[in-house]
Amino acid sequence: MAASHQEIVELLRQVTGEDEDWAAGVTPSTRVDTDLFIDSLEIVELGARMRDVYGVDLPSYIGGLDLQQLIDLTVADLAELTAA
């Protein structure tokens, strides 16, 4: 089951503890690292939730990215990952 942009934003909101106003500003092109400043503990929690809900291995995916790809990782990329 592929996730929508909004479903990924909701997971991000849950792991960061942000409110719905924050979530409203997150678009598909929002970059996880450089726009949202998601830290490593939040990435671990996001990975656990994505694994539980979508069967996605986010840590392995992220581990295969080079530095520029990691910097450029967007919310849309996370949603697309769930479709793979």
Rank of each mutant, 00 (worst) to 15 (best):
A79N: 02
L70Q: 15
G55T: 06
G64E: 10
A24Q: 04
E42Y: 04
D77R: 09
Q6N: 06
H5Y: 05
D77N: 14
V75Y: 05
A84T: 11
G55M: 09
V56Y: 10
L73P: 02
A48T: 07
G55H: 07
V32M: 08
L65I: 14
A84W: 12
D21E: 12
L78E: 07
D66P: 05
S29D: 13
I38K: 04
H5P: 03
T16F: 00
G25Y: 01
G64Y: 11
R31L: 11
M1E: 15
F37C: 10
D39Y: 08
L65F: 14
Q14P: 00
I8C: 07
T30V: 05
V53G: 06
L41Y: 11
Y54D: 11
G25E: 00
D72E: 15
G25P: 00
I8Y: 05
I38A: 12
G64W: 07
T16E: 01
Q6H: 03
V32C: 07
Y54M: 14
E42T: 02
G63R: 05
L58K: 02
E80W: 03
A2V: 14
E7Q: 11
S60K: 04
D72C: 13
D35E: 10
Q14C: 00
V75D: 08
D35A: 05
I8M: 11
G64N: 13
V15I: 02
L58Y: 12
V32P: 03
G17A: 02
A48E: 12
Q6P: 02
D19G: 04
V32E: 04
I43H: 13
E80K: 11
A24H: 01
I38Y: 11
S40N: 10
L81P: 10
V53P: 02
D72M: 14
G47A: 10
A76P: 01
E18H: 00
D35S: 04
T82N: 10
M50A: 09
A79F: 06
L41R: 09
D19W: 00
L73F: 15
D66A: 12
Q14W: 00
W22R: 00
Q14G: 02
Q69I: 12
D72F: 12
L78G: 11
P59S: 09
D72K: 08
T82G: 13
G63K: 08
E45I: 07
R49K: 09
I38H: 10
L70N: 15
V9Q: 01
E7I: 03
V26K: 03
L67F: 11
E42S: 04
L41V: 12
G63F: 05
D33W: 07
G55L: 02
W22G: 00
A23C: 01
T74E: 09
A84S: 12
R49P: 01
Q69H: 14
V9M: 06
S4E: 08
D21A: 05
T30H: 03
L70K: 10
G47I: 02
E80N: 08
D33T: 13
A76M: 08
Q14S: 04
Q69T: 15
Y54K: 08
R51Y: 07
L70H: 15
L78K: 05
D19N: 03
S40A: 15
V26I: 14
G47H: 05
L58G: 03
V9H: 04
A84K: 14
L67N: 14
D35P: 01
A2R: 09
D33A: 15
L58S: 09
Q69A: 15
D66M: 06
G25I: 01
G64T: 08
V75H: 09
H5E: 08
H5Q: 11
V9A: 06
L65N: 10
T27H: 08
V53R: 07
V44H: 05
H5C: 13
